[in-house]
Design a binder for these strands. Structure first.
Lengths: 199, 199
DNA sequence: AATAAATTAGAACGGGCGTTCAATTTAGTG
DNA sequence: CACTAAATTGAACGCCCGTTCTAATTTATT
């Protein structure tokens, strides 16, 4: 009666790995299950042995990716002492870890009326995660007096959209060349929210 | 021997109109020629009477849309006297006239290896238009002393990506509610590039 | 009224898609 | 070694896509 332990986890891992890569490169609609099959070396049928369907597979990958992004940020965050440092750190974290193209795939899926509500909802919840991270930094900065008091939700949207917009450039430019740009955005943003010392 | 003048221009106009709408709503891949046929009331075959194929049709629409955007801006621009005013005006112009979803469709098309190089090139040229518009405002501001002298190309990218990022919000929020946000972005941006008067 | 060209519809095609399913191989168990 | 369940394949299905083709209809000119 002992549980048998076979091993299809290698296969599953391979599929996940390759699928993440291809979805990132080509988006959701333009990635076929056949593409994933070919890249992973497993048959189309086997993909359906591990995953219910293409949609569920994508959502899982998006969740994994975002979770990874968030965990890595949490690990890094404590190494910064001020909210200001955290903002700069976040900009770099976004530049190097945010999987813009995968998120783009999410928009494709979400905008398709045929997609299950469940998946759309799941993806929507993912999009909230980075915003919450930005918000918490801004909040902290206001509370400890680094930043002026102001409309934190508005600031969150502003910094979030700016970083999101900048990420579009990652499609066409080498990441490292974008560092100054990301930093400059934070510098400009900070210039408007930093508390100016009374002298 | 005189040229006959029939009238299928109504049909063509209808198709263009509906196709623009649907491409904007659903993106490139998820819009089928059948969708356009149904919405316009003309047969699939007739669409191919007017347009070579789906790809060319899309490129044409994108060009029309961008041309329209640019013309409208040119018409508006002269009503602003300072570069500062122009930036605020541009933000509103982008908010209300930039067809983000259509541009998204362009990215889909461009990222498909099967797309013709010609189309990809045409779309790429379109993406340059708004950037050039931003740049010219910044240039003007520097030249007439409104703005500090600085790296204009970097500023262009920064303001461009910010407005582009903000535009993503137009998918989910009422345009008019976004006005303050767009204005706030410009205000923050200006705070960093405006020349401070010597006193 | 006849004609020829412009316009439109609709059926048909080949292909690729996501998905299902039956059959086969693989590997642990007694 | 036989047995059984997991793992994996590959063919098959039905669907919708972009596109083409042919035939019908409308329209302007003669």
């Amino acid at each position: 009666m002992g549980k048998r332990r076979y091993n299809s986890e290698n296969a599953k891992r391979d599929i996940i790995e390759k699928a993440t890569l291809i979805f990132s490169q080509k988006g959701y609609n333009q990635t076929s299950v056949q593409d994933i099959s070919k890249a992973s070396g497993y048959s189309k049928g086997h993909i359906y042995y591990h995953f219910q369907n293409k949609e569920k597979l994508f959502v899982l990958l998006a969740q994994n990716t975002m979770q990874d992004w968030y965990k890595k940020w949490m690990a890094k965050e404590s190494s910064y002492t001020t909210a200001t440092e955290k903002l700069y750190g976040m900009a770099m974290h976004v530049l190097y870890n945010y999987q813009t193209p995968l998120l783009k795939g999410g928009q494709e899926l979400a905008s398709n009326p045929a997609s299950s509500l469940e998946s759309v909802k799941a993806l929507h919840e993912l999009a909230v995660i980075p915003m919450a991270s930005y918000r918490s930094i801004l909040q902290e900065g206001v509370e400890n007096g680094e930043f002026e008091s102001g409309n934190i939700d508005e600031w969150t949207l502003l910094v979030g959209t700016w970083l999101g917009g900048l990420c579009q450039l990652t499609n066409t430019q080498e990441l490292s060349t974008l560092e100054p740009l990301f930093n400059q955005a934070i510098t400009m943003f900070l210039a408007s929210i930093k508390r100016r010392n009374k002298e």
